[in-house]
Nucleic acid binder design. Structure first.
Length: 538
RNA sequence: GCGCCUGUAGCUCAAGGGAUAGAGCAUCUGCCUUCUAAGCAGAGGGUUGCCCGUUCGAAUCGGGCCAGGCGUACCA
């Protein structure tokens, strides 16, 4: 049980023994204290207790404090009441013990949370195989992968899926565009269709075409998809399943679905087309599923896909999409609701666009015209780790300014290097200690020798790691973990400058080695969750 | 017009309705015979776009404005 859970229990016990047992129904919030003067954890519960007995939060807090202290919890050093907040100060020994546990790999601080039997499906990237992944997809990929890792760490059973649109009009246009490029290469006049793809990547693909009787659409899509998979693999973003739109079409699932919906009066014909009555579930208007030319819209197979997701029994569905899809959300919510799935359990995360800068210069992009920076180019220029870090250290719903020059810089301005430098320093200390005859793996020092305030600050910060993970789970704010890590790096760098770890004092050295290796455990785990690798040397 | 996102220090951004709104960069001042100075210590910098409201308490929630971005297809 973590210190925080223990505190919550102590508060519950205190309340059970008071005239306010009904207050227990409310959630008791225990959070890491923002400043060390406010202790280690605090609760704002006194604010909820204000009534005739407790006319002010302050009196309620004092009352709570008395009750808590009378139960004499052994891990609490003191409890302070300030401005109605109840602040808990933990005993130093709690932290010292925690450091030993973390460094030996036995601590619940770094280990995954217990499995809770909740299944979550995350669908992300889902880019069409009509062109290479762009920087926008890269951001979605980095965010989705990291969110998946964090949810898994927090005890969810996570499945990652990529839905690919390999049929329909866009693929047809893609095929015609490739065909045009192919014949142009042979010196023949051939126009790219009006809404076709003008990107130069099709020229490269056209060079690979050996036989002009092939299906150009399929050839291009397969070729591009192979590239997408390669890019994602290099980005270390991996999917459990690749779901093809065409499977829902050829498998008859779309037809079946529409029949069911028709039977329920949710699908009808009008103006030569077939419509889904999404307005019955809050969409602003109904949506076409079969066009008047008889072909399906993108929505029809996607509806079948979502029905399939529901059938597979997930507790939560997460769809990570770009801002261009936000108008699409109500209709997907409508289809899941029509199948009795609470739309609240379908979360859409809109990852906003990224604007690339080269120093002050803004890089303009237009996908249709083929003027864009691909994820591939970005990785080649700044590297996968720097790319990923910049993508996730801002909130998903914020527009992101990404400065290529900054991402490449090997200096303080670049947070990626700041983290890497901290990591390398930790590794190097352990290596140096080993070279000086200290058996780093087998230490059992007296941790009470750690008396510096900075040492306690580090331990305190490490104790907050599970809370940070919890915050990410509650808000889907992956950036919170990146910020946590930067703060951790900062207090470590500061400690490093103020105090030497490896000294003549063998006992103190041993205790500090345990501290550093605990730090390294948390640091490594957090980086793994962010999907960022780190070098051993810099 | 309608919908979504954004508006916080000079710049890029944090901050579950909580305490004195925080970081980094930039600017200024210091620090390398000692585990990598890709680092550290310190200083200045704010009417959280504006106006009302809800609340013990609002950057955060609601309403109304203003500004920027995106969307508003029988495209995906």
């Amino acid at each position: 049980m973590t210190a925080k859970q223990k505190i919550r229990d102590v508060i519950k016990k205190a309340l059970a023994d008071t005239p306010y047992p009904e207050k227990l129904k409310e959630e008791i919030l225990v959070l890491p204290a923002a400043r060390e003067e406010f202790g280690d954890f605090y609760t704002n519960f006194a604010f909820k207790m204000v009534d005739s007995q407790n006319p002010s939060p302050q009196t309620a807090a004092l009352y709570l404090k008395e009750k808590i202290l009378s139960s004499a919890p052994d891990f609490i050093e003191k409890v302070e009441v300030k401005n109605g907040f109840v602040n808990f100060f933990l005993k130093r020994g709690v932290y010292l013990r925690m450091l030993s546990e973390i460094s030996s790999g036995k601590s619940e601080i770094v280990n995954p949370f217990p499995a809770m039997g909740k299944k979550v499906l995350i669908e992300f990237v889902s880019s069409n195989p009509t062109g290479p992944l762009t920087v926008a997809h890269g951001r979605q990929a980095a965010f989705g992968e990291s969110l998946a890792r964090i949810l898994k760490h927090a005890g969810f059973e996570v499945t990652k899926e990529y839905y690919l649109n390999d049929g329909g009009r866009q693929i047809k246009l893609l095929g015609e565009s490739l065909r045009a490029r192919y014949f142009r290469l042979k010196g023949e006049e051939c126009a790219i269709p009006d809404e076709g793809y003008e990107g130069e990547y099709l020229i490269d693909i056209a060079k690979e075409v050996k036989d002009e009787n092939i299906s150009f659409g399929k050839f291009a899509a397969d070729y591009i998809m192979a590239g997408i998979k390669k890019d994602l693999a290099e980005f270390n973003v991996n999917f459990d399943r690749w779901v093809k739109e065409s499977d829902f079409l050829t498998g008859g699932m779309v037809e079946e679905l529409l029949k069911i919906l028709e039977g329920r009066g949710l699908v009808y014909s009008s103006e030569g087309a077939t419509w889904f009555k999404s307005s019955a579930y809050g969409d602003e208007k109904d949506r076409v599923v079969i066009k008047s030319d008889g072909s399906y819209t993108y929505l029809a197979p996607d509806m079948a896909y979502h029905r399939d997701k529901i059938d597979r029994g997930y507790d939560m569905l997460v769809n990570i999409v770009g801002p261009d899809h936000h108008g699409y959300i109500p209709r997907i919510k409508a289809i899941v609701e029509s199948f009795g799935f609470n739309p609240e359990r379908l979360k859409f995360i809109i990852v906003q666009l990224t604007t690339l800068y080269r120093g002050k210069e803004k890089l303009s992009m237009s996908t249709r015209k083929g003027q864009f920076v691909s994820l591939r180019q970005l990785m080649d220029e700044v590297g996968p780790d720097a790319s990923k870090f910049f993508f996730i250290f801002r909130k998903a719903e914020s527009h992101l300014d990404f400065d290529l020059e900054l991402a490449k810089k090997k200096s303080v301005e670049n947070p990626v290097y700041y983290l890497q430098y901290a990591y390398v320093r930790m590794k190097h200390i352990l290596k140096f200690a080993g070279e000086n005859g200290i058996d780093v793996m087998n230490l059992n020092p007296d941790m009470a020798l750690l008396k510096e305030p900075e040492e306690l600050s580090i331990a305190r910060k490490l104790a907050f790691f599970p809370d940070t993970v919890e915050s990410v789970v509650n808000t889907f704010g992956v950036h919170l973990l990146a910020e946590y890590l930067l703060e951790l790096a900062k207090i470590f760098h500061s400690y490093y400058h103020k105090h030497r770890v490896v000294t003549e004092n063998r006992e103190l050295t041993a205790a500090r080695i345990v501290l550093v290796s605990a730090l390294l455990q948390v640091f490594s785990k957090a980086l793994e969750l962010l999907n960022i690798s780190l070098p051993d040397e810099m």
